[in-house]
Computed example of a mutant assay.
Amino acid sequence: MTHTTLDGTAAHDTGFGELPHLMSLMTGDEKHGPAATSTLDALWVLYDRVLRVSPATAQDPARDRFLLSKGHGPMAYYAVLAAKGFFPTALLPGFGSYDSPLGHHPDRVLVPGAEIGSGSLGHGLPLAVGTALGLRARGLTDPAVWVLIGDAELDEGSNHEAIAYAGAAGLSRLHTLVVDNTSASHGWRGGIASRFEAAGWSAVTVDGRDHEALYAAFTAPHPDRPHAVVARVEAKEYSGEPKPKAAAA
């Protein structure tokens, strides 16, 4: 299918199988490759099958919002946005260069389709809570708000405050996707999902490489409460050895 990108150029829909090639176009001094590849499957399922947003509706108040909190590894995000026509794939080889809009952290005023600037840990989920509250205040009760965070971001207290508030406020249009590649310094006894459940969220843990499991988790009903999906992927490597997981309760 051919469509028009946000800058008015023509683009073609790209399938999941072509995403590794798109990511390979982004070279240079990138220090967060595992942070990017850990999110690739989940991002694709969201943009391909769940999110109600496209280049044509990127400014529509009724659109779904997706916030990438894990912005320090944006290559997969850029590849998916390009594949879906938010900007031309010709921009990808310039990733991280001085005059490229595709920086090592996304900038919402430069990257078509990006809702927030991100990269510093612990900011995205509080921003998503504020977005959900803002939409509610404007009477826009249909748009969904999605935020992708890394498991290491749960080391940040700002996220725990946001989790507690969202559960108590019953922000049912708020969804948090936690990509768990065992990066957290502390972990969570009982598993990450238990932290959300304790605060009144609906939560489920799935294989972060299984597209059907991701889709089922993303679309699971969760009336009157926010929803969290923990997508577990292969452990991030530390000096050649996986970091051990925290013991379960």
Results as ranks from 00 to 15, higher is better:
2 T>H: 11
4 T>Q: 08
6 L>P: 09
7 D>I: 01
8 G>I: 03
10 A>S: 11
11 A>F: 05
19 L>D: 00
29 D>S: 13
32 H>R: 06
44 W>A: 00
48 D>R: 12
49 R>Y: 04
51 L>K: 07
54 S>T: 15
59 Q>L: 14
59 Q>C: 12
60 D>L: 06
64 D>I: 00
64 D>R: 10
68 L>D: 09
73 G>A: 08
74 P>T: 04
75 M>Y: 02
76 A>T: 01
84 K>I: 01
85 G>Y: 10
87 F>D: 10
88 P>S: 15
89 T>A: 13
93 P>N: 12
97 S>N: 14
99 D>I: 08
107 D>A: 09
111 V>H: 06
116 I>A: 06
122 G>F: 08
136 R>F: 05
147 V>T: 09
147 V>C: 07
152 A>D: 13
155 D>R: 15
160 H>I: 03
160 H>V: 02
162 A>G: 05
165 Y>G: 03
166 A>K: 10
168 A>C: 02
181 N>F: 01
193 A>L: 08
199 A>H: 15
199 A>Q: 15
203 A>P: 06
204 V>D: 08
206 V>L: 02
206 V>Y: 04
208 G>T: 00
209 R>Y: 10
214 L>M: 03
217 A>L: 04
227 H>D: 11
229 V>M: 06
232 R>Q: 08
238 Y>H: 14
243 K>T: 11
245 K>E: 14
248 A>M: 10
249 A>S: 12
